[in-house]
C-alpha cells in the first residue's frame, strides 16, 4: 500500500499545483481581456431590431 507521504504523491502535488496556477492565470487573463473589451466597447451592443436615432444634447 502506498503511504500518503510517498514520492508519487509529492510529485503529483507539485504537478497539480502548477496546473492550478496555469488555470488560474488563464481565468485572470480572460477576465482582464473582458474588462479591456468592455471598456472599449463601441461595438458590443447587440442588434435589437429597433431603429434608433442618436439625439445629441437632450
Amino acid at each position: 500500500m502506498l503511504s500518503p507521504e510517498h514520492d508519487l504523491h509529492r510529485r503529483r502535488r507539485g504537478r497539480n499545483a502548477s496546473l492550478a496556477l496555469v488555470l488560474g492565470g488563464f481565468v485572470l487573463l480572460v477576465f482582464a481581456v473582458t474588462i479591456v473589451k468592455l471598456s472599449n466597447g463601441g461595438q458590443i451592443r447587440g442588434f435589437d431590431h429597433t431603429p434608433e436615432t442618436l439625439v445629441v444634447g437632450q
Partner: peptide, 13 residues
C-alpha cells in the same frame, strides 16, 4: 518498482 523511477505518465511540469 515504484521506488526506482517515475512510472510513465507521472511526468513533472
Amino acid at each position: 518498482d515504484i521506488y526506482a523511477e517515475a512510472p510513465r505518465g507521472e511526468a513533472q511540469m
